[in-house]
Design a protein around this nucleic acid. Structure first.
Lengths: 260, 260
DNA sequence: TATTATATCTCGGGT
DNA sequence: ACCCGAGGTATAATA
């Protein structure tokens, strides 16, 4: 790992050069120092002086972090240019984004530490049980929602959007299913309602609408009852177990999950 | 600014102690090193080995950053405990959150740099022209939406949520206004529709619904027409000028904006 | 490029 | 503690 560390004793000129070169050669830059920050773009903001952590990532992502909180106070998700220049008081860094047109400018008046590095990271990131996977698992085992339910399509397109799962119940009545992976709020209910109405308008048959989630807010249940919609709670644990089971059942060397 | 810097030559035992103490005394910890990361909580993820930047903030916020991208690959917005222990290969850091129950565990097998600091940041952050401010400006100058419009209430509560602006047009017909500060999509239309329907049910009078935004997606305009709703485009620049104007008109030493 | 839906969304404000 | 809505949301998928 490349690693250079500069302290408060380094000359500003040298720091400016160092940071410029680091950005040009797509290195990671970490700065600890006192600064104020201006932002102009989709909105406008101004942050007065304080001690902060500034990070310029190897792809130009730009972050200004205060000492607390998960989120950066100012940032630039992707930059078209990052300008570094010496000002009379310290160093000015400007991170520019082309579309939407946005500018973050940091006025550093005290620099305590600059770290330059180059991280090598080819690690694989795997996330389990996102909404799509839940939907696929429920499609594979619709009896978890209701006995006799047959799912015939996922992500069925309607004029107003696409339905998570679509099928027919044991009486042959069409069923529209909306899946959520966290507690469903009334927003989810309106989403489902929208699909049910749209289906009704398009096909002339009133379908059942079922909201499937690990939990429901009170107002969601009220809305469901008011709109004559149904809901079914599922256990994340059960689906997780189902997934593990399916991962062990392989077909032609691939997990069954790949075929859903 | 407190500042301690430790390189790869520091003993693991000493690093463990240093990091533990830093966390206990609510300091900022920055680590550069090679690690893998596990996460279990609202979802589950696994990240295999690679070089990363780990940040533990003064309030316990925990971030693992890869060399690219705005967002951390793993994180904990707030922690109830952070445990640091020496393992056979390196250092293991576990960030625990109580509610929702979540755990992020980092297995560091190479540590290149540890920085401990304490940032002092009492700077004030001001964001201009968020949705609330736009709404207040439109309330002050409703003719920007329509001539003869009178706004009588903001954030009017309805069973299904609260209306941004409520008033009456020049013919005395009630008007429900939904304000967006970015291009409005069909979601915004459904939100407005929900309010219009709810008002109709509650008061027995069909109100007009106007979506006010700097722009509209094609499907938003389709939905508006289908649902007999109206829309009005505003110029962010115009509102920005109005704001600057109001900032200069002061009353009892305070900006007029404070009274809206 | 624009639009849509999701997110371990986060965060703040309300009840 | 839950619920709700806004966000400079970011991000990935899709048309």
């Amino acid at each position: 790992m490349i690693l250079e560390v500069y302290g408060a004793d380094t000359s500003l000129e040298h720091l400016v050069d160092t940071i410029r070169n680091a950005i040009a050669s797509r290195k990671l830059v970490i700065i600890l120092g006192e600064c104020s920050v201006d932002y102009i773009g989709r909105s406008e903001s101004r942050l007065s002086t304080g001690e902060r952590l500034i990070i310029i990532k190897q792809d130009g992502a730009f972050l200004v972090h205060r000492p607390t909180g998960h989120s950066p106070v100012n940032w630039q998700p992707e930059t078209s240019a990052i300008e570094v220049k010496k000002s009379d008081k310290g160093i000015e860094i400007t991170a520019i984004r082309r579309s939407p047109r946005e500018i973050v400018r940091v006025y550093l008046n005290k620099i305590e530490l600059v770290v330059i590095s180059k991280l090598v990271d080819s690690g694989e990131f795997m996330m389990y049980l996102d909404e799509g996977e839940l939907r696929d698992l429920l499609m594979y085992k619709p009896e978890l929602i209701e006995d006799g339910l047959k799912i015939i399509e996922k992500e069925k397109k309607l004029p107003v959007g696409s339905i998570d799962l679509f099928g027919f119940d044991k009486n042959g009545r069409p069923v529209i299913i909306e899946v959520k992976r966290i507690t469903a709020s009334k927003e989810a209910v309106y989403q489902l309602y929208k699909y049910v109405e749209s289906y009704y308008k398009n096909y002339g048959v009133k379908p059942r609408g079922i909201l499937v989630a690990p939990g429901f807010t009170k107002s969601a249940i009220e809305a469901l009852e008011r709109l004559s919609l149904e809901y079914k709670q599922y256990s994340l644990q059960k689906l997780w177990n189902l997934k593990k089971e399916l991962m062990n059942h392989r077909f032609k060397g691939r997990s069954i999950l790949d075929y859903l």
